[in-house]
Design a protein around this nucleic acid. Sequence first.
DNA 1: AGCGATTTATTTGTACGCGATCTAACTATG
DNA 2: CATAGTTAGATCGCGTACAAATAAATCGCT
Lengths: 155, 155
Amino acid sequence: MKDTTSNDLADVPKIDEMLCFSIYSASHAFNQLYRPLLDELELTYPQFLVMTALWARDDRTVKDLGETLFLDSSTLTPLLKRLENVGLVTRNRNPDDERQVLLRLTEKGLALKSRASYVFDCIGKAVGLDAEAVSKIRGTIASLRDNIKKDKHES
Amino acid sequence: MKDTTSNDLADVPKIDEMLCFSIYSASHAFNQLYRPLLDELELTYPQFLVMTALWARDDRTVKDLGETLFLDSSTLTPLLKRLENVGLVTRNRNPDDERQVLLRLTEKGLALKSRASYVFDCIGKAVGLDAEAVSKIRGTIASLRDNIKKDKHES
DNA sequence: AGCGATTTATTTGTACGCGATCTAACTATG
DNA sequence: CATAGTTAGATCGCGTACAAATAAATCGCT
């Protein structure tokens, strides 16, 4: 006799049919693609993203950086301390508001930007898509992300 | 006099123009979307992916599971031990090849599949795209991932 | 059969991510 | 101007990720 309380046949998707898994695995793939390149700069991939954000805009607070990267201070504080320890950034309380910590690139941190160009070139080649295709995919994924985050706020 | 050795003007992209960042941040967004749903099942998001893979195919080795998820045993072993500790899977050496560990779902692990259906439904609604759109994006990201991983092997 | 090379999983160490909690500093309101 | 409430960062704990090193089992080759 068949046990009808068993749920073996419950209908769940296969892992490679899941949108979230494609993103999860692509995220790891990028990490692995970056790693050997970033080893040269003695940076991790998240550290490199932080540096990239700071190259675009310097002299900003941890909160501000966090809003750019969608990361909070419990992730950023230890990471930024590591960047400070290797002399790439400085962290100083804002005299006008002692709650805030202002981040600034050092000379060394700024200088690293030129070596980073090479990394971006390599990644671009590895991805192997033209600018238009990259832009389209990026836009699609960014909207998806923003959609998901909005939903979270609404509920 | 201007210091021409300075590389302030080196040409690097902004963070939100980077394809890798869209994926990085979307990956975190999915994690955050899943978290409250998976709290009910007392699973983390990676644990849920492992369970999903096992619901599709049971009685397989750690290596085999790792190839499905693109994760290696140093990530999976501790995660699987946690699933074993809560009684969702069993881990036993394969008598025919003692190097391998065979993973099997317990009754409890199988039973969880029905409750997972609800999670998939919620995620589907939050993503808010029709099946065709999801399929297209998923395919694009998966090819991108496979492309990157292939490059890595070739170099 | 013997033994070096390979394969599978585990262990170890480092660095994220992030919820939860804490502390110090600022703001608002009476 | 007092103080409750809010805000910005830091800290803690847990669970990934993953490289590197280790251990045990199997394979391949002679």
